[in-house]
Nucleic acid binder design. Structure first.
Lengths: 256, 256
DNA sequence: TAAATAGTGTCTCTTAGACATTATGGT
DNA sequence: ACCATAATGTCTAAGAGACACTATTTA
């Protein structure tokens, strides 16, 4: 009976999609040392990695890296595989962004795209630039990507959505850690936040981050074996205390 | 040249998915008046609407309502259509939850499901119970749905994820408004929050919500034409001030 | 008048926010 | 000695948190 039903089920009765790719918005925070001045914070910029398409459709246009999902993997698997292909590395923060399914968004047919965003380090992208010599690779600031380039498909919308999301995550989670070494100073952290969210201003940042009860627990100071606090003067004359993120992710509420 | 490429492009070169449905976790907050006592808050419970499947696969099991996306609509359109079909109403909060694509999750083939969650009012679900007499419809508490029922597909995971998400949204956004009349008392609001997030405790709720600067702006008291504050004694002996949500959505940050 | 819920008073300790001041090392 | 950045001091106003207390209505 159940077998009968199963046999009578026709999986191709309706029109089905022509493909389900995973596209990845790869963010990186470039870090350029300022040679003219010593002991100062590097210049940081938030950039997104794009590749120039070689084939129809949108040949010659810049687009997000991505690839089609296969039958034996989940969308997340496909994105992980794609990220690995592009960077040569397994690591990096990879997070689902959303689905893009507006009819007609892809001239190849009914293609439903799943967007992810990844936070990778700059050196990971050099891998791609070296290996895939045929495909042109570019790193663009968000302003360039959103205002100056003519992107393929609806990738402009995807990048815009990803930008909103990464800004939100930067303020509400500890993803800032993805853009920092394990040990960092508070001005580095502040700079990273401001690079991703330029509107963020907090005059008493050091004091607040170290003294507020609700924030206690997301950072801890770094100490050596004897329990002495460690500091660094890499970016400043006076050495600055080093901090690291704990495993705590704070839970915010508008009512508390 | 570009036309050549287009003609040579074979959209069916690879295996493609067999269908892309939208499934909806429909939450409702039931409200039962307590007849024994007068002037008291109703009993509220968070419930999820499920339908009993009639056909293979998982015939006889409880499952989320849903339907396949068509070529001429986006996934969100499909979910909107589905919500309308189930409730007979256009309104209600509908929000994307995520994609479920683990290989083998659907015995019918390669089927990639998109989950949404909706917040609807209880009366909206009576429509379905009346119209679709063939399909059995049920309202279950989250405990029942997650711990007692044997659900179809991976709908257990979807409901669990939706539950986490609605709890998060309840604390970080003003979706509580979806479960309240336009004008409500603060104890009603408190009860709604606690019904969705039982862990939420806030002894000085009235004072905090009305006096904290960071929260100022999400609620405003209701006044009549002459500017007199309005109150209600529907649920209490002493009349309570009525409030309404404003259009402000607060922005939270762990660093501020 | 008792019961039930709404809302305020009060007190202590912590935090916010704005600036001024001191500290530490490099040039 | 001077500069740049790190970090603390200081002061006021506001909020957190806990509990006791008063207010307004119905039964």
């Amino acid at each position: 009976m159940s077998d009968n039903e199963q046999q009578s089920y026709n999986v191709k009765k309706y029109r089905t999609p022509d493909g389900v790719p995973a596209d990845i918005v790869m963010f990186t925070l470039t870090k350029r040392e300022r040679k003219t001045v010593t002991k100062t914070l590097p210049l940081r910029e938030l950039k997104v990695m794009l590749i120039r398409r070689k084939k129809w459709p949108y040949a010659g246009k810049w687009a997000l890296p991505g690839g089609f999902c296969q039958e034996d993997e989940s969308i997340y698997d496909a994105a992980t595989r794609e990220l690995k292909e592009e960077t040569g590395v397994d690591g990096g923060h990879l997070e689902y962004l959303g689905v893009y399914s507006t009819p007609g968004r892809d001239p190849r047919g009914w293609i439903i795209s799943h967007a992810f965003f990844a936070l990778v380090e700059e050196w990971m992208l050099e891998h791609r630039q070296a290996s895939d010599d045929a495909g042109e690779v570019g790193l663009f600031t968000l302003k360039e990507a959103l205002e100056e380039l003519d992107l393929a498909f609806d990738h402009h919308d995807i990048i815009k959505d990803a930008y909103v999301r990464i800004q939100q995550q930067m303020l509400q989670t500890t993803i800032a850690r993805q853009f920092l070494p394990r040990h960092f100073t508070l001005s580095e952290l502040y700079q990273v936040i401001q690079t991703v969210v330029p509107e963020f201003k907090e005059p008493n940042f050091i004091r607040k981050i170290t003294s507020t009860r609700s924030r206690q627990g997301i950072l801890q100071d770094v100490r050596d074996e004897e329990g002495n606090t460690l500091s660094s003067n890499q970016y400043s004359q006076r050495p600055a205390q080093l901090y690291m993120f704990t495993d705590n992710e704070p839970l915010l509420s508008i009512y508390t």
